[in-house]
């Protein structure tokens, strides 16, 4: 527990001492402003927007996860660039402890942001338990994304490019809402597709559990696989 807290605290110190990372902490504030002030304004001023509100909400929820996706990726890449990562290879810390330490707080923080986001929006009735479930699954994007980038990238500059690409990969399934029904499932290759569909079902008042179940399984499998590739690339 002491190890976990020490590493988590150190991550926050690193974030607050790096102006570029610190500025990213403002992203959720922007998203909250959009949901609290922007969406009601849009719906009032432009009636045509209303049918797309659920889709917009889904995108906002996924974008909410992007703050820690980016920040954590950059902190780990900085570690790799300065070769501090090698030191973690020779301390009595298991890969499980390492990943838990680095991602537990960003995960919980992202989960809370998503819960708060669904609570402050005024368009949909989302039961608290379903809100918690959805937010918990969406927050899994954070470790998957950061471990994914750090498994394939060697430095921060490369990481910036990959972050753009990963951001697109996360949002590609958004297009499934605009294609004919028979093509929709082609997006199932992307784990966030199932999350998007589950969120949409939830906001529509339908059962989201099948989609959310697939999303959870998909993200957890990716998390396990990427933990292994990350271990190989990060510590040696």
């Amino acid at each position: 527990m002491q190890k976990l807290l020490k590493l988590a605290l150190m991550d926050f110190k690193l974030i607050f001492r790096d102006p570029s990372l610190k500025s990213f902490l403002a992203l959720p504030l922007l998203l909250f402003a959009i949901v609290i002030f922007g969406f009601p304004y849009l719906v009032t001023e432009f009636e045509g927007v209303k049918p797309y509100l659920d889709v917009m909400m889904v995108v906002v929820l996924v974008e909410n996860t992007q703050m820690f996706c980016f920040i954590n990726s950059m902190v780990l890449l900085d570690e790799k660039e300065t070769e501090v990562s090698k030191v973690y290879g020779i301390v009595p810390l298991s890969i499980f402890e390492f990943i838990t330490s680095r991602f537990l707080f960003p995960y919980l923080f992202t989960l809370l942001l998503n819960v708060a986001m669904l609570e402050v929006q005024t368009f949909y009735e989302v039961p608290l338990m379903q809100n918690l479930l959805l937010s918990a699954i969406a927050a899994l994007i954070v470790p998957v994304y950061a471990l994914g980038i750090n498994s394939f990238v060697k430095n921060r500059m490369q990481g910036m490019v990959y972050a753009k690409a990963f951001n697109i990969l996360v949002l590609i399934p958004f297009a499934a809402f605009f294609v004919p029904e028979q093509f929709k499932w082609a997006f199932g290759l992307f784990p966030t597709h199932w999350l998007f569909q589950g969120m949409d079902q939830l906001l529509a008042g339908n059962s989201p559990f099948l989609n959310l179940g697939i999303a959870t399984a998909y993200l957890l499998i990716l998390l396990i696989v990427l933990s292994k590739t990350f271990k190989r690339s990060h510590f040696s």
Binding site: K3, K6, L7, M10, L14, T82, E83, K86, V91
Partner: peptide, 24 residues
Amino acid sequence: FELPNHYMKLTGKENLELFASFYP
């Protein structure tokens, strides 16, 4: 290690304290 590898944004003491915390 052959080359220095530390957290640049942390102080020397913070670096040492962090890695010391991993040992029982």
